[in-house]
Simulated assay, not measured.
Amino acid sequence: MSESSRQRLLDDAEVYALYATTETERRDIETERLRVDDTARAQFDVLVSEIHETLALAAAVDAAPAPARLRSDVLARVASSGQEPTVRELPPNVTPLHRHRRERSKSWRYSMMSAAAAVVVAVGGVVVVTQTMGNDAQPSQADQIVAAPDARQASAEFPGGGLATVSYSLSQDAVVVDLDGVPQPPPGRVYQMWFVDGAPRSAGVVSEDQLTSENGTVVDGLGSSTNFAFSLEPAGGSPQPTEVLTMLTLGA
């Protein structure tokens, strides 16, 4: 088996998986698959399988019920038309997709599959297209802090129950505060957070939403703080802590 035959088969994996070939071209690809060695055949099968999985995921994410009228029209056409596949000759001004594809690099092919997936289904002359275009969500600030190479974590119990956990990153200059099972403060009082690097610096009061949030609270301005503290203060907070409840040590 020549290297060119192996590469040609791998180059055809995408159009084969997307059914972007004529019936004759598809048979040629399948014949070529049988001619190559086991390694090349396995690589081809893996590529086809990965593309099918990507398309299935894209279809599942963006799937929506077809309008009732469209569904009934499609089913009516299917019922009244023959089910044998039809292969049409291409017009002279149309070049088969796989000939263009061989000019593209491998990096382009893989970036195309990760950035967009398109499924085209033709039934009785009706074409339905499902497409996704780069819908990957950007990581939140909290995710970036927790995932930073220098990220650390410290935890301490609250008086009366509950746990305070602080994830922090010097490079991100911020912390993520998670409060698990911490009770509500007494009426007219609030929890206040503090950066401690000599003199305490207020990091804000804890709102009721933050107290019950499962996503954590991002607080910027870590600086060179070596401790993070919680205190119990009058509503609205205090310029300096008056009743420290717990303090977490932030290591380097």
Results as ranks from 00 to 15, higher is better:
Ser5Lys: 01
Ser5Val: 00
Ser5Leu: 04
Arg8Ala: 02
Leu10Pro: 02
Leu10Thr: 04
Asp12Ser: 09
Ala13Arg: 01
Glu14Ser: 05
Val15Phe: 00
Val15Pro: 01
Val15Gln: 01
Val15Met: 02
Tyr16Lys: 00
Tyr16Ser: 01
Leu18Val: 01
Leu18Trp: 03
Tyr19Pro: 00
Tyr19Gln: 13
Ala20Gln: 08
Thr21Gly: 03
Thr22Arg: 08
Asp28Tyr: 07
Asp28Leu: 12
Ile29Gln: 03
Glu30Asn: 10
Arg33Asp: 05
Leu34Ile: 03
Val36Trp: 08
Asp37Phe: 13
Ala42Trp: 10
Gln43His: 14
Gln43Asp: 15
Glu50Leu: 15
Glu50Pro: 06
His52Ser: 14
Glu53Arg: 15
Leu55Phe: 04
Ala56Asp: 14
Leu57Thr: 09
Ala59Leu: 09
Ala60Pro: 00
Pro65His: 09
Ala66Trp: 14
Arg69Asp: 14
Arg71Thr: 09
Arg71Cys: 01
Ser80Thr: 05
Ser80Trp: 00
Gln83Gly: 13
Glu84Gln: 12
Pro85Tyr: 12
Thr86Lys: 12
Pro91Cys: 05
Pro92Lys: 08
Pro92Val: 07
Thr95Phe: 05
Leu97Trp: 08
His98Val: 08
Arg101Met: 09
Arg101His: 09
Glu103Val: 05
Ser105Ala: 13
Tyr110Asp: 10
Met113Cys: 04
Met113Phe: 10
Ala115Met: 11
Ala117Gly: 07
Val119Met: 11
Val120Ser: 14
Val120Ala: 13
Val120Trp: 09
Ala122Gly: 05
Gly125Met: 08
Gly125Lys: 08
Val127Ser: 05
Thr130Ser: 11
Gly134Gln: 10
Asn135Trp: 02
Ala137Met: 08
Pro139Val: 02
Ala142Ser: 14
Asp143Glu: 15
Asp143Val: 07
Asp143Lys: 14
Gln144Phe: 01
Gln144Leu: 15
Asp150Pro: 11
Arg152Tyr: 05
Ala154Arg: 01
Ser155Asn: 10
Phe158Met: 15
Phe158Ala: 02
Gly161Lys: 07
Ser167Thr: 12
Ser169Asp: 07
Leu170Lys: 14
Gln172Ser: 14
Asp173Tyr: 09
Asp173Gln: 11
Asp173Glu: 11
Val176Trp: 02
Asp178Trp: 01
Asp178Ser: 12
Leu179Met: 13
Leu179Phe: 06
Leu179Glu: 06
Pro183Asn: 03
Pro183Glu: 08
Pro185Asn: 06
Pro186Ile: 00
Pro187Thr: 04
Arg189Ile: 00
Val190Tyr: 01
Tyr191Thr: 01
Trp194Ser: 04
Trp194Tyr: 09
Ala199Tyr: 07
Ala203Gln: 06
Val205Gly: 09
Ser207Asp: 09
Asp209Pro: 00
Asp209Ser: 10
Leu211Gln: 01
Ser213Asn: 01
Glu214Cys: 00
Glu214Leu: 10
Glu214Val: 04
Asn215Ile: 02
Val218Thr: 07
Asp220Val: 07
Leu222Pro: 04
Gly223His: 12
Ser224Lys: 11
Ser224Ala: 15
Phe230Thr: 03
Gly236Ile: 03
Ser238Thr: 10
Pro239Ser: 14
Gln240Pro: 00
Gln240Ile: 05
Pro241Cys: 08
Thr242Val: 15
Thr242Arg: 14
Thr246Pro: 03
Thr249Met: 08
Thr249Ala: 15
Leu250Pro: 05
Leu250Ile: 04
